[in-house]
Amino acid sequence: MANGIIEKVKEQATSVWEKVHGSQVAESILRPGSPFKKGYSDTPRNRSYVIMNNVLYHLHPVKVKRHGVRLSYTLCLGGISFFLFILLTITGIFLMFYYAPTAEAAYSDVAALSTSVAFGSLVRNMHRWGAHFMVLSVFLHMSRVFYHGAYKPPREFNWVVGVILLLLTLLLSFTGYLLPWDQLALWAVTVGTNMAGFVPVFGGQVKFLLLGSVEVTADTILRWYVLHVLFFPFIIVIFMAVHFWRVRKDGGISGPL
């Protein structure tokens, strides 16, 4: 009796699923070759389609060199840098909901993350440690590329793009450093921007441009906030796009050694 009912429910569920899965809506969403599409089978052609018929094609070619897939070659460091950037974007958007870039509110907003926002301190910690990790992984990625000689022709220019990405990563991290507006933030940034002030001839101007003033002031928060959440992310995404594009157009991953 009970078994019969269960059977029936199962049957019903299966047929509803079949209908939904085969519906025009599902068909329109899933392009041919999608592994989620009804009737997908694991054929070489479909394996190509998974990439090619998909937005993934913007990031990956259909096939890659066998040795490039091995973890021991790239250590996935470029990929990890990129993924950390995505994580930082997601956690950063969350933080933006609770943060006002003013001298009055900034510090208490950040402090409140730990006390009155659900998951606030977890997300803040992820954002902060993730940022440190990203700087680290970009450095390591650069070293991996160097030791493989992967900057040699035809990849010279992608190395240059990479150095710009490194610089942007540092700038992103540094501009974020100020935002909690605590003693650590204020003085680390003061020390950091003082170094910029040593640039000969226009050091003063550079510093002024960075800070919006001759010293770190309350106005600096807004300026660095905009740089941190909008300007540098925007620029870095553009350079990443160029970087990934060139990885492919320069013939995929370098090597094997």
Binding site: R47, V64, K65, R66, L71
Partner: peptide, 15 residues
């Protein structure tokens, strides 16, 4: 001539 594998599943699984 290079020895290649399909990005899906080989590379994407790793990623």
């Amino acid at each position: 001539p290079t020895d290649k594998v399909n990005t899906w599943p080989h590379l994407m699984i790793m990623e």
